[in-house]
Design a protein around this nucleic acid. Structure first.
Length: 874
RNA sequence: GCCGAAGUGGCGGAACUGGCAGACGCGCAGGAUUCAAAAUCCUGUCCUGGCAACAGGGUGAGGGUUCAAUUCCCUCCUUCGGCACCA
């Protein structure tokens, strides 16, 4: 710490300016300022944890703050808010252990993290703070859910519409009508096998399970059928895919979303089941697929989905998923026991088992056969869990010669392998022919009847048309994306605002009943049945049906943590509106989010879910843009000083509070930006941090006399010399450009170069210092405000104009050129920036070292690159 | 296995559109200041050889295109992130 009176005392300065900004509401965003263009800068809001802020948080927040402050000075009306994604498991688990209400824990944690965030001097408009656990907030989360519940998706117009507009087929009786409506709601209930984690006492979404264990905690997960709420995100698959073209996001992130959506184009093909009297004794009602009315008639066909209809001639057997509804119907009596056993095993398997056993294929023959529609061949029908009931039709045609999984299965069970595609590579041809290699690429068709000789792409198209003409199949598209499992068996989440009525079924609450508040309970432990903790809130549970007025029970499931974060960016726009989630005019003014900064860990889930909600709200006219986030930037992770991920157990966690206390917020901000590219993963270094504090000390001493605390004697109202002026203008240009492209590290480097130069000058002209302080201010706002004030300005610099650079003054008068002979540098010359090629050439050839290097040889070619180099080729 | 990103001094990293590799910071070494230290300032710092001038090598490895490659193309290796029987 500096004992000198006028030294750089960051503690005092930072506190002073933070208070100043808060009292003056310096960063209040104005909804009605039509004189400026708007710019919405959003951070991914944090979960308020008991551990508090992590050094990773300020990284993204600093970057977004720099952009906010920069754009503000550039004359934009800035919306830059912060809030809390406060529902979540840790507070609930703490409640289970200690009995403390999660609201209490949450509020305490929020206070702690708010203090920490404020200590870093970000230019947030704190009047817009939101908290997902606030009933005034989750009222609208529930409201969106109700809108989904009361909407259906019109496939023709590809948009959601109110459920009242759903055309209902003629001749349905009342209960059928109700079922028809329920089956079309965008939020719907379904009994389905879910990922049940006994240790967490919770059902997890697919994306919360990794490798058979829970992502959080690593507990084993098993499959268990349960009543669940789902959101029909699959209806939006195509639009979610298409509209990625419209957003300015990192390409890898878009690619991850595309992979997650997983669109496949292929064909659905019907295979006739060869019937024999032995399995006619148990009829089944219908296939699972009820979308087409024609399907309900089919009992003697198996429909498969394939992306390779061109390999139909190579289909030597079929495989059904163990859960496929036709299994009972087709299994022959002699195979019945074996099939039953296999199905039971498959049902019992947890996801962990399935992953573990993935190496070794299992399966069982049903005794039944199907007829390959293209060549009338009789092929066996097998059962295996490598076919998933939830994808495609739950059944496949197996082409072992051209599909790795089928190949493996065929080898294991000694099934026929017929090659129908000839690989272009000669080496592969022989191996595939001998059945030693499986070839999955494109090639030329063989053994394929009238299609033999066609190339894969051509074949696919021709056979799809052929199938369609013959009524054997049709073009089909499938997505990996599944409907979003939206219910959680937890206490600390938004209650789902519906009731269960014996008479009326599931009935949504009227909007006037929102928010449906979480009841206060004493016992947060989930019943071991897998029922949610809310099922213990007996008083709360009992209610009346909004439709018939009779007794009804409330829904006990709550929403997942993702729910609140799906629309928070809209609430910031109008955080206190009691009549709407967000005022339409304000939405139209502020949206879309111009810049969204956050961690790449949300590449698919949060960003896909939020896009889905946004599109839904767009369909119903509540928002005006197709996409919520125009530009997205991911900050990389900050590792510990040992290059490892920071964790308590490794003891390498850096505490931001301590960094701020010891070095100041400005140093911390600067260091986090100087470490390297924003998106990169990079290790922390305390010594590196000290370097940035030294830089700020130098800046301080450039302006302030440390003895007196007043401006230094060298600070004068004088003109700058030519060199200084040029460097200043170059720096203004560089820093502004680098902020626009998020290269904060090189922007800081440029300011260091300017500082180093100024430190060597006897005079520090105000006309240089002032613009320098302004361009430094987005990075280190506290010291900048203080120096600005010390130089005699009475107003905050937050709304000063960003300094302009003069392109003429940026240009160098003279440039140094490297002179190469055959690509090797031999000498350097200095020429005027205006020198023409011929002049440069002559000078280069006149260099003593060049003449020596040429050794009398004639140059074949002389290449002159202006302001770069000359290469003489002999 | 598939998809994606990245490999540059002792360390973090820089290099426009193919044009002087190593900006800036850290560390280290030497010096100034000091009774001494901290702080500060100055000088040096890719590797090898040389007192030096200088010469040679050098951006994960190998090849190619080019007057010129960290940058473009091919093959391979390593690390990190994502997905994982999706027919």
């Amino acid at each position: 710490m500096n004992e000198k009176k006028g030294g750089y005392k960051f503690n005092e300065i930072e506190k002073k300016w933070q208070q100043f900004w808060e009292h003056n509401k310096t960063f209040k965003a104005d909804d009605n300022d039509k004189s400026k263009p708007k710019y919405y800068v959003l951070d991914m809001f944090p979960y308020p944890s008991a551990q508090g802020l992590h050094v990773g948080h300020p990284e993204g927040y600093t970057a977004s703050d720099i952009v906010s402050r920069f754009k503000r000075m550039k004359g934009f009306n800035i919306l830059h808010p912060m809030g809390w994604d406060a529902f979540g498991l840790p507070a609930e688990q703490y409640a289970i252990q200690t009995g403390t209400h999660p609201a209490e824990t949450t509020s305490k944690n929020i206070d702690g993290m708010r203090r920490q965030i404020k200590s870093l001097g970000f230019s947030y408009d704190w009047d817009r703070e939101v908290n997902t656990t606030d009933p005034n907030y989750y009222k609208w989360t529930q409201w969106v859910f109700l809108r989904m519940f009361n909407s259906w998706f019109d496939e023709k117009q590809r948009k959601a519409k109110p459920i009242e507009e759903l055309p209902i087929p003629e001749g349905l009786i009342e209960t059928e009508k109700q079922k028809y409506i329920d089956d079309h709601r965008l939020a719907y209930e379904s009994e389905m096998p879910v990922n049940w984690c006994p240790a967490l006492g919770a059902v997890l979404a697919n994306e919360e399970v990794a490798g058979g264990v829970s992502e959080r905690g690593g507990h084993p997960v098993i499959r268990k059928p349960m009543r669940q709420w789902l959101l029909r995100i699959t209806e939006y698959a195509e639009r979610l895919l298409e509209d990625l073209a419209e957003v300015d996001w990192p390409e890898p992130i878009k690619e991850m979303q595309r992979n997650w959506i997983g669109k496949s184009i292929g064909a659905e093909v019907d295979f006739k089941i060869e019937t024999s009297p032995s399995h006619r004794d148990n009829e089944i009602l219908a296939t699972e697929d009820t979308e087409d009315t024609e399907d309900t008639e089919i009992k003697d066909k198996i429909r498969v989905f394939t992306t390779r209809p061109d390999t139909l001639f190579g289909a030597t057997y079929m495989v059904l998923a163990p859960e496929h509804p036709l299994v009972d119907c087709i299994t022959t009596n002699d195979k019945r026991d074996e099939v039953k056993k296999y199905r039971e095993e498959a049902a019992r398997k947890s996801d962990l088992d399935r992953t573990d056993l993935a190496k070794e294929k299992t399966g069982v023959f049903t005794g039944a056969y199907a007829i390959n529609p293209v060549n009338e061949e009789k092929i066996p029908i097998w059962l295996s869990d490598y076919v998933l009931i939830s994808y495609g039709t739950g059944a496949i045609m197996a082409v072992p010669a051209h599909d790795d999984r089928d190949f493996e299965f065929a080898k294991k069970f000694s099934l026929a392998i017929i090659q129908v595609v000839e690989p272009p590579d000669a080496q592969q041809q022989e191996q595939v022919k001998q059945g030693k290699l499986c070839f999955t690429g494109d090639g030329t068709a063989i053994n394929s009847g009238q299609f033999t000789g066609l190339q894969t792409a051509d074949f696919k198209e021709k056979i799809t048309n052929w199938l369609e003409q013959k009524g054997l199949g049709k073009k089909a598209i499938n997505y990996k994306l599944r409907d979003w499992l939206f219910s959680r068996q937890r206490y600390w989440g938004e209650p789902i605002p519906v009731v269960h009525c014996d008479k009326c079924g599931i009935v949504s609450l009227p909007e006037s009943a929102l928010p449906l508040r979480l009841p206060d309970v004493r016992d947060y432990t989930p019943p071991q049945t897998g029922e949610p903790p809310l099922s213990k809130a007996t008083e709360w549970l009992k209610t009346t049906c909004p439709q018939c007025g009779g007794a009804a029970k409330r829904e006990t499931n709550t929403m997942p943590q993702w729910a609140g974060s799906c629309w928070y960016y809209l609430r910031y726009i109008d955080p206190n509106n009691n009549g709407r989630c967000c005022d339409l005019a304000k939405e139209k003014y502020w949206m879309p989010v111009d810049l969204y900064i956050g961690g790449a860990e949300h590449a698919v889930l949060h960003l896909l879910y939020a896009r889905f909600w946004h599109k839904f709200l767009f369909d119903l006219g509540y928002v005006s843009t197709k996409e919520p986030f125009k530009k997205l930037i991911n900050q990389g992770m900050i590792l510990g000083e040992d290059g490892q991920k920071m964790s308590k157990s490794r003891g390498n966690v850096i505490n931001p509070d301590k960094v701020v206390a010891d070095y100041g917020a400005d140093s911390m901000r600067l260091y986090e930006m100087f470490m390297g590219p924003l998106e990169a993963v990079k290790p922390w270094s305390m010594q590196g941090l000290e370097g940035l504090e030294r830089f700020l000390q130098r800046v301080w001493r450039l302006v302030i006399d440390e003895e007196t605390g007043a401006p230094a004697g060298s600070v004068k109202d004088a003109d700058a010399n030519e060199q200084t002026t040029r460097l200043l203008h170059q720096t203004i240009k560089k820093v502004g450009g680098d902020i626009e492209t998020f290269n904060f590290n090189t922007a800081i480097s440029a300011m260091m170069i300017l500082t180093n130069h100024l430190a060597k000058q006897a005079v520090a002209p105000k006309c240089v210092l002032e613009p320098f302080i302004l361009i430094l201010s987005p990075f280190a706002p506290h010291i900048a405000e203080e120096l600005w004030q010390k130089l005699g300005h009475s107003k905050s610099l937050a709304y000063e104009n960003w300094p302009k650079f003069d392109p003429e003054l940026v240009k160098e008068a003279e440039v140094e050129l490297a002179i190469q002979v055959n690509g090797k540098i031999k000498d350097k010359i200095i020429v005027s920036a205006q020198a023409d090629d011929e002049e440069i050439k002559q000078k280069a050839l006149a260099c003593v070292k060049v003449i020596a290097a040429l050794a009398g040889k004639q140059p074949k070619k002389v290449i002159v690159i202006k302001s770069r180099l000359v290469n003489i080729v002999v």
